[in-house]
Amino acid sequence: MSATRLDTDALTTALADLNALGQGGWSLSGGQLCKTFVFCDFVHAFGFMTQVALIAESMNHHPDWSNAYAHVRVALSTHESDGITERDIELARQMERLSGNG
């Protein structure tokens, strides 16, 4: 999967596709692709994080994220590319799938 930074057009298209895939909520902030997932309780939020962690590890691509009770805030970027790449988009797609939104 490419670690080439997405240009503005590709990023705009990818963001629209992600928001159409699930419940929306993806945005750009500080050069990162961001979303807050909301679950019914802590157990579901933590279960989601566990599933994502296994996928992220297999991709060798790890999110910046935080958890507060039923909320999981995610910020994706590819550090070695200093921006958002297809690797971030693919991990975001997987997150949507695992959250039950995609």
Rank of each mutant, 00 (worst) to 15 (best):
T85D: 03
A75Y: 08
K35R: 15
L98A: 12
L28V: 02
S99L: 04
G24Q: 05
G31V: 03
Q32K: 15
L15N: 04
S2Q: 08
F48M: 08
F48K: 09
T8W: 01
G47Y: 05
L98C: 11
G25W: 03
S66F: 10
A45D: 04
M49L: 08
L28I: 03
A45P: 00
G22Q: 08
E80P: 01
S2D: 13
A20Y: 01
T12W: 02
N67S: 08
E57D: 15
A70P: 09
S77K: 15
D88E: 12
S58P: 02
H62T: 13
L21D: 12
T4S: 14
A16C: 01
D41C: 10
A20H: 04
T36Y: 00
M95Q: 02
W65C: 10
M59C: 09
L6V: 07
H79M: 03
C34T: 15
L54G: 15
Q51I: 00
S27N: 12
D17K: 11
G47V: 05
S81P: 02
L98F: 01
S81V: 13
S81F: 04
F48H: 07
E90W: 00
H79W: 09
L91V: 12
G24F: 14
A14Q: 04
C40Y: 03
D64Q: 15
G47D: 14
A3M: 14
I89Q: 12
S99V: 04
G25V: 07
A68C: 14
F46C: 05
I89F: 03
D64G: 08
H71M: 08
A10E: 14
H61P: 00
H61Q: 05
L21H: 07
P63M: 01
A53I: 09
S58T: 11
Q51C: 03
T13I: 04
Q23Y: 10
E86V: 12
N67F: 02
A68W: 14
A75D: 11
L33V: 06
G31I: 02
H71R: 15
A68Q: 12
D7Q: 05
L76D: 12
R87K: 14
H61F: 04
L76M: 07
G30K: 08
S27E: 14
K35E: 06
H79T: 01
D88P: 05
V72C: 07
F37W: 09
G22C: 13
T8Y: 00
G30H: 09
H44A: 15
H79D: 06
C40R: 14
D64R: 06
W65Q: 09
F46E: 06
S99Y: 03
G47H: 03
Q32L: 02
I55V: 13
F46L: 15
L6M: 08
S27H: 13
